[in-house]
Computed example of a mutant assay.
Amino acid sequence: MPDALTFLEIVAGISLLFGGGELFVAGAVALSLLLGIPQIVIGLTVVAFGTSAPELFVSLLSTLQGSSGGDSIAVSNVLGSNIFNVMVVLGASAAITSLRVRSRLVRRDVPLLLAVSMATWAMASSGSFTWVAGLALLTALVITLVWEVRSAREDHEEGLDDIDAEGASTTPVALFKLAVGLALLVVGSQVLIKGAIAAAQTLGVSEAVIGLTIVSAGTSMPELVTSLVAAYRGKADLAIGNVVGSNLLNQLLILGLCALFSGQDGLLVSPELLRRDFPVMVLTTLACLPIFWSGGVINRLEGWLLLGAYGLYLIEQILSSTAAPGIDEFRLFVLVAVLPLVLVFLTWTSLRWMQQRKAAG
């Protein structure tokens, strides 16, 4: 079992990341309000960048350590965070209250996220992200950001009326929050990485498993808190846009930078991540389309369905990392029982929505 110091390092690192992410988001939103950016675009860009900052610092610093363990934490942190964002952040937000989805998410942003997810999976299939792949991801990031800003000017109906102005005080206060949040993110990342690697060594599990579970959940706390608060206050655009935008930035920005600074061998990707976790990330992204499309609302049942799916994912992680005897039976149960039920449910909700639209038309 990990000693008390390792446990305290993990808790302290997550706490510092949580506080730093909160301050960073507050400062970023305050500045964006002064620029008059619509709510959905704030969620997809500014808030998404702020809440993805913990993942960025943890992954980048672990890569700069120059070890294969650092690479495992960097890649698995991105994968785990993206899976956590869709299943837990989006699921918990919908469990609080049904979330209405804007059509632009279904038409543009989710298909873009799906395309990026499949592209990163293809890039990783060689066993590493090279500096060329990193440069390609960063170029795609710039194009995406320009596209979001240009499209925001066309979406005149998406105003700032629903956003609280409480955080938009003055520019010096916003910059101070950004600076303090940035400092906490740097320190928290270093502490969490140290504790996570020590825990992995003590428990005898791989750094990839630690990155997929403890580290990814810890660094995704800002996304979770931001989306839960937004959902509770009735700001579905901010809650959903935060998840979609964070998942885009996790791949384009974080994997891009880590690959660019990973050295001659590139950012190494373990076969286990390629075989299991990349497909899970792509499938969870693909599942967003019928959920978002069916009536334009993510209802509470679908939210609980996403949370239940993450519970199964965690069980599989634990069983596989401990080489438990029932792992094959559990995977068979998920494949022949759970997955078909989920597919039937998604198909049924989509068909019901199409019938309702046909009847209304």
Rank of each mutant, 00 (worst) to 15 (best):
L289Q: 04
N299F: 04
S270M: 08
P271I: 06
P271W: 00
D277Q: 06
G263D: 03
V282D: 03
P271Y: 08
Q264S: 14
L283P: 02
G263E: 03
L283C: 02
G263Y: 06
P290N: 12
L273Y: 04
R275L: 11
L274G: 14
L286M: 13
L267D: 12
G295N: 10
A287E: 10
L268E: 13
G295H: 09
Q264Y: 11
G295D: 13
D265R: 13
A287M: 15
L286A: 14
I291R: 02
R275V: 08
G295K: 07
L268P: 00
P290H: 10
R275K: 15
R276W: 13
C288I: 13
G263T: 00
N299Y: 11
L283Q: 00
S270I: 09
G263I: 07
S294K: 04
T284R: 00
D277T: 07
L267V: 09
L286G: 07
S294N: 09
S262L: 01
D277S: 10
V269Y: 07
P279W: 11
N299K: 07
F278Y: 06
E272D: 14
S262Y: 01
G263R: 02
L283N: 03
C288M: 15
D265V: 05
A287H: 09
V282F: 02
L267N: 12
R275C: 01
F292D: 11
L283F: 03
P290K: 09
V282P: 03
G266H: 08
S262P: 04
C288A: 14
G296R: 05
R276S: 11
G266K: 01
I291Y: 02
V280Y: 00
M281G: 03
F278H: 02
L283A: 07
V297M: 05
F292V: 10
G295W: 05
V280Q: 01
V269M: 07
E272G: 14
P290C: 13
W293I: 01
A287N: 09
N299A: 10
L289P: 13
E272Y: 11
R275T: 12
F278C: 04
L267M: 12
D277C: 09
P271G: 05
P271L: 05
R276Y: 11
L289S: 10
G295M: 01
E272N: 13
C288P: 01
D277R: 02
L273Q: 07
G296N: 06
S262Q: 01
L283H: 02
L274H: 09
D265C: 00
F278Q: 03
V282N: 00
Q264P: 08
R275W: 10
F278I: 03
T285A: 10
L286V: 09
T285F: 06
G263H: 03
L286K: 06
D265G: 12
I298V: 15
S270V: 11
A287P: 12
W293M: 12
G266F: 07
G295R: 10
S270Y: 06
L274V: 05
S270P: 01
I291E: 02
C288R: 03
R276N: 10
F278M: 00
V280K: 06
C288H: 01
L286H: 03
D277L: 07
S294D: 04
L289V: 15
G296H: 02
E272R: 13
E272S: 15
A287L: 14
L286Q: 03
W293T: 13
L268G: 00
G266V: 05
